[in-house]
Every structure is written in structure tokens, then in C-alpha cells.
């Protein structure tokens, strides 16, 4: 046994490099972004672990970041993805256009308080000893946590995307989710606000997401890896999310045509022009 073979042992972590894909214990799903894959342990999203995605506001491209993984899971493997309390409706035509099978999505909402077929109306005198579980059954946060853990543990969903009440989400809850995700070998994506980064977490992977520079009309996402297994944090990754389909000239021509057309059809076209003026030197595409 030579010193190099000892150094190559998967249990030995060397600060200057990540786990290589072959040596990484867990499995992973490639993210579809080569820059990101290079820094993720195992070369992709870690399955059987919690990945925290911390972002200031929804809509900056967080779903496109996961798009490739979603497409692989639903389209190629034919497995299920569970969305727990998403802030908006995942739009099926948009998902389909991104190559994701929207028929494999399971949407779970714990915030609606429609407890159907309760049988008898609620009565003042409750049943004997009211159990603790019964108490927590009415708490939406507890129900969401329960659903998240159950979904992660069951292993029937390859991927769980969860939005939880972050003001009440502590380290212990994340740890439980981490254990559940490991048992079910689930890729668990937990979406949290940026303030969550102030406290430590048991999640295997923590990312800070921010909208990238979009001056040329391309959508970019700035990703900082705050925590990863077997490596230091990485800052300043810029991912190109989509390609602008139309050139600037095309867009301007279309807009000019639209304005004419609209002026002909609408009674008061003046109200329709509060768009910012074209400053010429600015790369903004306006009219």
C-alpha cells in the first residue's frame, strides 16, 4: 500500500479537493450546469440529503436551477416529485416546455384548513383525553413538517420541494428532515429566505441564490455555495439560465408593430405607454 493509495481513500478528506464523483458515497443527479456540477459533491444535487436554497424573493430562476434534475427524474426515470406549499402555482405548460413531465407532480397544500368529512360538528366537550398529536394536528406548521418528513421518508417521491414557515424552522427540524431524506434516498430541496443563512444548519448543501446581471437580456443566476460536503464554500458562480430567443432588433420591430396595431384598436392608446423611454446608450430593450 503506497502513500498515494492511502491518500486516495474515500474516507480521507483533503482540503484541496472535493470528493471525486467515483469516491463520493452518496448518489447525485447532475444539475445540468457544468460550472455548478464541478463544485457540487458527487457532481450534482445530492440525493438522500437536504439541500437548502436560500433566496431573497421567488422568481429569480430557482426552478430553472433545478430544471434539469426535475426533467431527469420525471421524464427519464418516471418518478414522482412532491411540491409542499409552493408560494405560487407550478405552471404545467411552462414545466412541459422545460422538458419536465407535469403529470408526475404531486402538489400538497397544508395551509388550507378544509378538514373534510369530519362527521360531527365540532363540539365543546372533546373526547376524553385529547392527545398531543391531536393538538398539533391543527397547527399548519406542524402539519407541513409532518408531511415533509413523511414524503421524504417514504421514498416514493424522488424529489421533494418544500416551502416551510421559516420563522419557526429550527436546526432540529432540518436535522429530522435530513435523516428522513437519507432514509428515503430523496433529493430534498428546502427553499428558505436569506435570513436563514445566519444560523447554522444540518443540511448537506446550502446555496445562496440571487438574480444575476441581466443587462444583455439574458437571465442569469448568481449562486454562492455556502456549505457543501467535502469542500470549502464557493462564491460567485454565475449560471446562464436561458438564451434570449429574439435579438434586440427583432424585439424593437415587434414592439413598434404592436404599438401601431394597438393604437388602431384601442379607444385610448395613450394610457398604454408608461414604459420607460429608450435612453439610447442603455442596453435596456424598450421602445
Amino acid at each position: 500500500m503506497t502513500i498515494t493509495s492511502l491518500l486516495d481513500h474515500p474516507d480521507l478528506w483533503r482540503a484541496d479537493r472535493l470528493y471525486r464523483a467515483a469516491a463520493y458515497r452518496g448518489t447525485s443527479i447532475p444539475s445540468g450546469f457544468p460550472i455548478l456540477d464541478r463544485y457540487l459533491p458527487g457532481g450534482g444535487w445530492p440525493t438522500g440529503a437536504v439541500s437548502e436554497l436560500c433566496l431573497a424573493q421567488p422568481g429569480i430562476g430557482e426552478l430553472q436551477l433545478l430544471g434539469s434534475a426535475l426533467a431527469q427524474i420525471t421524464k427519464n426515470a418516471g418518478r414522482w416529485v412532491l411540491w409542499l406549499n409552493p408560494p405560487f402555482l407550478p405552471y404545467a405548460p411552462g414545466l412541459t416546455a422545460a422538458g419536465i413531465d407535469a403529470g408526475r407532480m404531486l402538489l400538497v397544500r397544508t395551509d388550507n384548513n378544509t378538514r373534510a368529512d369530519r362527521g360531527a360538528p365540532r363540539q365543546r366537550q372533546t373526547h376524553g383525553r385529547r392527545s398531543r398529536q391531536q393538538e398539533s394536528a391543527d397547527d399548519p406548521h406542524a402539519r407541513a413538517l409532518w408531511a415533509a418528513e413523511r414524503a421524504a421518508r417514504s421514498g416514493t417521491c424522488a424529489m421533494v420541494l418544500a416551502w416551510l414557515d421559516d420563522t419557526r424552522l429550527g436546526q432540529r427540524e432540518v436535522q429530522r428532515l435530513q435523516v428522513a431524506a437519507r432514509q428515503g434516498n430523496t433529493l430534498f430541496c428546502l427553499f428558505r429566505p436569506l435570513t436563514a443563512l445566519r444560523q447554522a444548519s444540518f443540511a448537506s448543501l446550502r446555496l445562496r441564490l440571487a438574480a444575476g446581471e441581466q443587462t444583455d437580456g439574458r437571465q442569469r443566476l448568481a449562486v454562492d455555495i455556502v456549505k457543501r460536503h467535502g469542500g470549502w464554500p464557493v462564491q460567485g458562480l454565475h449560471l446562464e439560465l436561458d438564451q434570449q430567443r429574439a435579438t434586440r432588433a427583432d424585439v424593437l420591430a415587434q414592439l413598434a408593430f404592436w404599438r401601431e396595431e394597438r393604437a388602431r384598436w384601442l379607444p385610448n392608446p395613450g394610457a398604454a405607454w408608461p414604459l420607460p423611454a429608450n435612453t439610447g446608450s442603455s442596453p435596456r430593450i424598450t421602445h
Partner: peptide, 23 residues
């Protein structure tokens, strides 16, 4: 199968908690 999970979620969270996306 996911049916088991759906049963569990429906039983605890109330009917109609589990939805799917349709086009």
C-alpha cells in the same frame, strides 16, 4: 407506489390536500 403516500397525506391533512397539475 405513491398511492400509499397520498393516502397517508390525505388521511392526516384532510381530503383535497393532495393535488396534481393538469394541462
Amino acid at each position: 407506489s405513491p398511492a400509499t403516500l397520498v393516502d397517508q397525506l390525505d388521511a392526516r391533512l384532510g381530503d383535497g390536500a393532495c393535488l396534481r397539475l393538469t394541462t
